[in-house]
Write a protein that binds this DNA or RNA. Structure first.
Lengths: 194, 194
DNA sequence: GTTAGCATGTAAGGAGTTACATGATTTT
DNA sequence: AAAATCATGTAACTCCTTACATGCTAAC
């Protein structure tokens, strides 16, 4: 399973833990959570859902035909629900603090479910992420040294800009770590942007 | 040809235009230029090189066995050179201002070769990139509106942070556009970071 | 002596996109 | 009247990574 599919599974499990959803709505929420440049395609989502049903993590049910509104002619929707096994699987993924969790894709999803983890787990992931960003910074610095004469103003500007972005993310992570250590007041996270 | 391969071809053509290089060295420079998180694998590079040789854009020659130094036992290197057809192909790609050029992957590579283009081409690409970033910003803002109640402090912080990053890139692009309009002094590009 | 760097490749497999297939309803 | 949104899927294809295969040299 590729790193993309892995965070997809995690995100689906987490979203269905809140409420049962059908594929179309799930996709919209996943697009927000995965925050990806390109939208998730149905060719990725539906097979993944199928796979998760086969694995027993979620169940699929046809939406009850009519409750209050006659849902005039609209195509029947399939509602996905989390099973007990799925809940267990989600808990397992939630407590994961392996290096995979600080890579771009997974880190974002984990952050979205941070409220359901322990402070310890949060700190481990945040510190791992920080280390990962420092590595990236070192790589950029090394390549700046090696190619300073070879690059023209444009190439240099690009390198400096990406260095800057990574440095900013480090500062952001530092603020999250700080507020986590000071007792984890979730309101402080959003108070210091811009 | 995927969007990754496309910028790979462009970058290889540009690098070989400066000087003939062997695969291993080419890869190191490509890693800097493509600025990717993960290093380019040989399983991607060598087949791509092979393909370009077959297409007639580059030629491959065994490195002359010994010129001055006996290159003691080191494995024979294969040197790649740009052909006339390759030079033409590079010129073609250089003047491209299609929407593909303002996507993440390609934009970076195009920036690296900006010094070889006209101010007009540069402005078109920069403005396209700017528009692309504004779209992304609109998407983030829309998703923030839709999910403000659903997201907790962590999810919100993440959205705000990515919004911030994109806004900063817009400002950076604006500075590049400005200096381009004021006569394109390449030194000013690096003067305003941090 | 063993890790890291130099150097070039292949084969197999998996992941995910694009295009296709279908059709109703609501908004512009 | 057209375009967008709702809604679910499949099939083929493409790209790319991972793992394998090989072997020398320099540094630690």
């Amino acid at each position: 399973m590729g790193r993309r599919t892995e965070s997809l599974e995690f995100a689906v499990l987490g979203l269905l833990g809140d409420a049962p959803l059908h594929g179309y709505e799930l996709r919209k929420r996943l697009n927000v959570m995965l925050g990806s440049f390109r939208a998730l395609s149905y060719g990725t989502l539906y097979p993944a859902l199928k796979h998760m049903v086969a694995a027993g993590f979620i169940s699929q049910t046809d939406e009850p035909p009519a409750i209050t509104k006659p849902l005039a002619g609209r195509r029947a929707r399939i509602v996905y629900r989390l099973t007990a096994a799925g809940r267990a699987r989600f808990a397992e993924l939630l407590s994961d603090v392996s290096p995979a969790t600080w890579e771009d894709e997974q880190f974002g999803v984990h952050l979205n479910f941070f409220a359901r983890t322990s402070t310890e787990t949060r700190l481990r992931i945040l510190e791992g992420r920080r280390a990962r960003l420092e590595e990236r910074l070192a790589m950029i610095e090394k390549s700046l040294e090696l190619t300073r004469e070879r690059l023209d103003g444009y190439g240099l500007a690009l390198q400096e800009h990406s260095k800057d972005s990574v440095q900013r993310e480090v500062l952001w992570i530092d603020r999250l770590i700080d507020s986590e250590r000071r007792g984890g007041d979730s309101r402080t996270h959003t108070a210091q942007h811009g």
